[in-house]
């Protein structure tokens, strides 16, 4: 191979590689994404029923806590405007905007930002390799997220979460939880796989998937929540059910003719063998 041929070959190789291996993002996730509710629609839109815990790997502590939970808790002003935590935000009305923060000098990707419709939580996924805050730093609804690419998949790890919920019928998720997400884009469809671990309330990781479809006409409204005192209560009153006094204990089970032990959840209820 002559010098000229070798030079042409090297240039061609470099040209091809420059497209094949971008330095940062493997695929861009930016855009307006409309939530697709074909999966778990009943749980995600009208919402789960009381004492409908099946399919979640909760332990006995989570079960007892959920059984003491009263929806009236949400009448307390301090509870009214809480956004979904980031591990749950994709489950609700989750039309989402994703945008990139780029360093203007280096053109390196610093972060992805997301905003979701319901309660408008904004979240940052740091892509610049920064370290996590110390353990004594504040926890937030969205937590502290860092991401990296595995091929075309954005993998995100989130810590520093506030106490939240695994399902919005009283199943608690503790502030010691962490979760990992995989964002997978297939053209105009994006899938998110969320794997939550909780040393307090889960016996094994709780895994869910959510999907979006690109929506170029989407507009996400501003955050407009204001608290109101719906019921005058004595200061410090906290609505809840005492043990063994939840009036909805059997409602869901009876409506669908299910055994009570089935609707009370636990890892075993995630698997087909439990039904058998």
């Amino acid at each position: 191979m002559s010098y000229l041929q070798r030079s042409r070959f090297r240039f061609s190789l470099l040209f091809i590689l420059s497209f094949a291996f971008p330095v940062q993002a493997q695929i861009d996730l930016s855009g307006e994404w409309g939530a697709v509710f074909h999966e778990d629609s009943d749980e995600r839109r009208p919402g789960p029923e009381m004492v409908e815990y099946q399919g979640i790997p909760i332990n006995e502590a989570a079960r007892r806590r959920a059984l003491s939970w009263s929806p009236s808790l949400l009448t307390l002003p301090e509870h009214q405007c809480k956004p979904h935590p980031s591990d749950y935000g994709s489950r609700g009305p989750s039309n989402m905007r994703i945008w990139k923060e780029i360093d203007s000098e280096s053109q390196q990707l610093i972060a992805y930002h997301t905003r979701i419709r319901w309660q408008a939580p904004e979240r940052t996924i740091w892509m610049d390799g920064r370290g996590r805050p110390p353990e004594y730093a504040a926890h937030t609804w969205q937590g502290f997220s860092t991401g990296h690419w595995e091929g075309n998949v954005l993998v995100v790890r989130t810590t520093h979460l506030k106490q939240g919920w695994a399902r919005r019928n009283g199943i608690a998720r503790s502030d010691l939880s962490e979760f990992t997400e995989h964002f997978i884009r297939h053209g105009n469809i994006m899938t998110q796989v969320v794997m939550v671990s909780d040393p307090v309330y889960l016996t094994e990781p709780f895994i869910r998937t959510n999907n979006w479809k690109i929506n170029l006409a989407q507009q996400i409204p501003p955050y407009l929540c204001e608290t109101v005192t719906e019921i005058d209560r004595p200061q410090g009153e906290v609505p809840h059910y005492l043990p063994d006094q939840n009036p909805f204990l059997r409602e869901h089970a009876d409506r669908y003719n299910l055994p009570l032990e089935g609707v009370l959840g636990g890892a075993e209820t995630m698997y087909p063998s439990f039904i058998e």
Binding site: L73, Y136, Y223, H240
Partner: peptide, 27 residues
């Protein structure tokens, strides 16, 4: 905004908090 931060609360022991953390503890 979004029921977070605002008044920050330093506990006797443990991590930095805000109203929502005290609320859960009170509940």
């Amino acid at each position: 905004d979004r029921q977070e931060n605002g008044t920050m609360i330093i506990p006797g022991h443990g991590r930095l908090t805000d109203e929502a953390d005290v609320l859960d503890y009170r509940d």
